[in-house]
Computed example of a mutant assay.
Amino acid sequence: MGKPLVSVTMITYGHEKFIEEAINGVLMQECNFCVELIIVNDCSPDSTDDIIQNIIKKHPRGNWIKYISHKKNIGMMPNFVFALNEAKSKYIALCEGDDYWTDSLKLQKQVDFLCKNEDYGLIYTNANIFNQMENKFTGTFSFINNEAPKSGDFFPSILLKNYVQTLTVLVKNEYLIAAIQTIGDSINEFNMGDYPLWIEISRITKFKYLDEVMAVYRVTPNSASSYSNLEKRYDFLQSTFDMQFYFCKKYSLFEIYEKIQTNYSGFLCNKVFDLNIKYIDKNILNSFKPVSIRDRIIKLSLSFRWVYKISKVLLKLNSLLKKNVNIIKI
């Protein structure tokens, strides 16, 4: 095998039921260039390691695989960054060990586009969603992608919503390296490693959305963005808002900041209502700067123990309050 043009990074932990399908989705790729698959196992407690070793030995394309298994568990985020740092090719693709690709021409189509369009640095596609708990497909990511620009400049609108499905991405490594260096240790403060990277990369290059389903995103009880546990789900969403506020402040995006604050006020209200909690952590409350009448009402209610009753009223009035357009500067 010659020098790889594409490195595919695959982090895995406890994926014995899914890892073979994930690996086969990469090894089935039909392309006129060399590919390497970098699998980094974060000390899985199950038989994930045995399955990977067996594939390397028996699969005709087992020599595509560069396999690293940590002796101690280092955690999802450090493992994610570790895997990216192992990738040295011109282009980088990502697929976690519980997701998989379905189109054998995925990499070829994406490389062809980036080679022909030098002003673009990242291309991603649509993907099916498979709910493992219900054992059925529940749709695609088109409900998000329909709101996204089809191509061109994604910054700063990507701060309002992450349009990019990580398992479908192909990105130029030079931009990925630049983003990792720019973010630095701050990446460990967030509950997701991909979204901050797309934000930073969108500042320096154009994105392309290819409207084809080329992969499957698997929803499991442990999926970070799809926690069945409400408390974990809200913790993840809180981290998302923290990250959005971080980048708004970093790049002085005050107009975007105000839009996110509006979303955040609704999030806090729903959190109190769903979790039946009496008050929000003071540090979170102090970081919430109201920018509208609606925000002021919500912050006032969150400051008192009778917030649960207030939140019920606010939720009923939510559609009316959203129509408020008078922004109050503080």
Rank of each mutant, 00 (worst) to 15 (best):
V6I: 10
S7G: 09
M10Y: 05
E16V: 05
F18A: 03
L37M: 04
I39Y: 04
S44P: 05
D50S: 14
I56Q: 09
K57I: 14
R61T: 06
G62H: 07
N63P: 03
I65M: 13
N73P: 10
M77C: 08
N79I: 12
L84E: 03
A93T: 04
E96V: 08
D99T: 03
K106V: 02
L107F: 15
Q108M: 00
K109R: 14
D112L: 03
C115D: 15
K116E: 15
D119Y: 02
N126F: 06
N126C: 13
F137W: 06
T140L: 10
N145L: 11
N146W: 08
K150V: 10
G152S: 08
F154V: 01
K161C: 12
Q165E: 15
T166I: 06
V169A: 04
N173D: 00
Q181S: 12
E189F: 13
N191Q: 15
D194Q: 11
W198K: 01
I201W: 00
R203I: 01
K206E: 00
K206H: 09
Y217K: 13
N222Y: 10
A224C: 04
N229K: 11
D235Q: 10
M243C: 07
F245L: 11
K250N: 00
Y251V: 03
E255Q: 12
S265G: 15
F267V: 12
K271A: 07
F273Q: 04
D274Y: 07
D274Q: 06
N276M: 14
N276L: 15
N276E: 15
I277S: 02
I280L: 15
D281Y: 03
K282H: 06
L285M: 07
K289D: 07
V291S: 06
V291Y: 05
R296M: 01
I297R: 01
L302T: 05
K309C: 10
S311L: 00
V313E: 05
V313L: 14
K316S: 13
K322C: 11
N324T: 13
I328M: 10
